[in-house]
Simulated scan of single mutants.
Amino acid sequence: MIAFPNAKINLGLFITEKRPDGFHNLESVFVPVGWTDVLEILPAAETRFESSGIPIPGDPSTNLCLRAYGLLAADFDLPPVYMHLHKVVPIGAGLGGGSSDAAFVLKMLNDLFSLGLPGEPLEAYARLLGSDCAFFIRNEVKFCYGKGDEFSEISINLAGKSILLVNPEIHISTAEAYAGVRPKPSGVDWSRIAASPVGEWKQWLRNDFEDSLFPKYPALPALKEALYAGGALYASMSGSGSTVYGIYEGDAPAGLFPGMKTWTGLF
């Protein structure tokens, strides 16, 4: 079985408070985008995980894909599997790529072994793996709050729009990003955002991580400015960085960032 775990972007990202458990509450709209990894899972004589493409840091035995398998294997006595992940989505880039890979493992195992788990139980497993993981179970535009693992409906109209993602290959860890954050209420009327044209979003939306990361990494604000100069209706850093994106009417411009890792596509 082969699947294509996709990335996501954040429309606005407000860190609203620090929780007693050490995590942070946030408000954001998560939007799936079509930049994908490639994941294959097959029955095997023993459970193995291998990867290709972008090198994945850390011990392969602790990879989120194996942890996702372990959660379901413990409860459903799954047989061994072979997993191969071809990594394409940049790592430490604010796109949720690793979380998506893990969530897709849960969904693929559910299908491969006919476990019959609906969305909510799969989301519960995903929450054990990381704050972003649960979003990728349903993989739809959602208003996200709590740790980023609680959702409600929101209607965002991106019909006819395209996106240009630019990754300067700066790795920013979650710990580094949160170290510079000063939580505060968002003050955002999300229903107003949903009803407003994309070109007006910059009046109200912000990514709180930009305040501390832009001075530290000058390439990031330069990318944002270049996206606006290239005609973006709205531009922002995604997640905790370092990917910066622009949303355009019609097709996104080509050739703006030669030599950088980019992806373009329609919503």
Rank of each mutant, 00 (worst) to 15 (best):
I2L: 14
F4A: 07
N6F: 05
N6M: 05
A7K: 08
K8D: 04
L13Y: 10
I15Q: 03
I15F: 12
E17R: 13
K18E: 12
K18C: 06
R19P: 13
P20T: 13
F23A: 08
S28C: 08
V29R: 03
V31K: 02
V33L: 09
G34I: 07
G34P: 00
V38N: 06
A44D: 03
G53Q: 04
I56N: 07
P57N: 12
G58D: 12
S61L: 14
T62Q: 13
L64Q: 00
C65A: 07
C65I: 01
L71F: 15
L71R: 11
A74I: 11
D75M: 10
P79D: 08
V81E: 05
V81Y: 00
Y82A: 12
M83N: 00
M83E: 04
L85A: 04
H86K: 11
V89I: 15
V89T: 06
P90N: 10
P90Q: 04
A93I: 01
L95M: 14
G98A: 07
S100Q: 13
D101C: 05
A102Q: 01
L106P: 00
L109G: 01
L112A: 01
L115W: 11
L115R: 05
P118T: 12
P121N: 15
L122W: 02
E123D: 05
A124H: 09
A124L: 08
L129E: 01
L129P: 00
G130F: 00
G130W: 00
G130I: 08
S131P: 07
I137Q: 00
E140G: 00
V141E: 03
K147V: 13
D149T: 03
E150A: 13
F151Y: 10
S152G: 12
S152H: 11
L158M: 14
L158F: 15
A159Y: 04
A159W: 00
G160F: 09
I163L: 13
L165C: 12
S173H: 04
S173D: 03
A175W: 03
A175S: 06
E176A: 08
Y178L: 04
V181I: 15
P183A: 12
S186I: 11
G187P: 05
G187N: 10
V188E: 09
D189T: 09
S191N: 14
R192G: 13
A194S: 04
A195Q: 12
G199E: 14
W204A: 15
L205V: 06
L205R: 02
N207V: 14
D211E: 15
S212W: 06
F214Q: 11
L220R: 01
L220G: 04
Y228Q: 09
G231N: 04
Y234L: 14
A235K: 00
S236V: 02
S236K: 00
G239M: 10
S240G: 09
Y245H: 14
G246M: 12
Y248C: 10
Y248L: 13
P253Y: 13
A254F: 09
L256C: 13
F257I: 07
P258M: 15
M260Y: 08
K261R: 14
T264H: 05
L266D: 08
